[in-house]
Amino acid sequence: MKQAIKINKADTVLAEPILLEAKDISLRRYGRSVLKKVSLEIKEGDFVTIIGPNGAGKSTLLSCLMGLLRPHEGKIIRSPKLKIAYVPQRLHLENSMPIDVKSFIKLGRNMTTESKAYSDFILKQTEIERLWSRQLNRLSFGELQRVFLARALLQEPNLLVLDEPMQNLDVSGELKLYKLLGDLYQQRRRAVHEKHVRGPLSVLMVSHELHMVMAVTTKVFCLFHHVCCSGTPKEVAQNAAFKEVYGDDMVKLMKVYSHAHNHIHQADEESTRA
């Protein structure tokens, strides 16, 4: 029954512009299905958010997509030019190791940024220049998160993976981070033309914060062990399966937020129609 997938070079040849694709992956843990025939694809330039209740298998799915866990069934296909950088869910640091931000960022072997312009750009965007010589374990959670984010981005990934980045942040912290992510995503698209980087940045994010997700996300996957529904935020909000998982109130909330940035009254119209 166990059909371990192998990610070798033969599998990875892919037509552009799909960066990463999961085909019918299933995974069991302690005899229970965590993932059931999950399929999703991430194209170049996508901003994909996976939403779903606690214990829906979101983090497990991320681990499978990044190649940290092997699904029992199904296939993961990676584009040869895929380069992932990851911001983990738990950033908790022991006070036991003295290390400053600069050393931490430079640690490891993936630091391939050649372009000074790009690294300056990232450091400026994430506002960590002034944290540069601070000790890592003296940072606030929000600062720490920006440091991890900068470290990830300096690896010049074309896919940035974030696991619940809003966790443990207060509302203003959430807003800031979300704005930062949106800006980075947009600016890296623009930066392509300014020759800072090689390609656009795609983002794959797991989040609970539905209302925060709506502003930038291009594609939403609602996960509850299987993919309940997917599409643009608007499509998902109107989907019956989504309603089943989250209930009517959330559907209304989603509509308000997905339109809040242009016309609030339009959202009201839609919710009366629904």
Binding site: M66, P88, R90, L91, M97, L107, Q155
Partner: peptide, 14 residues
């Protein structure tokens, strides 16, 4: 050092 700081991150970075 990286593994001591964050095992998940180290794993994700290959």
């Amino acid at each position: 050092i990286l593994i001591s700081i964050n095992k998940e991150l180290a794993q994700a970075e290959g």
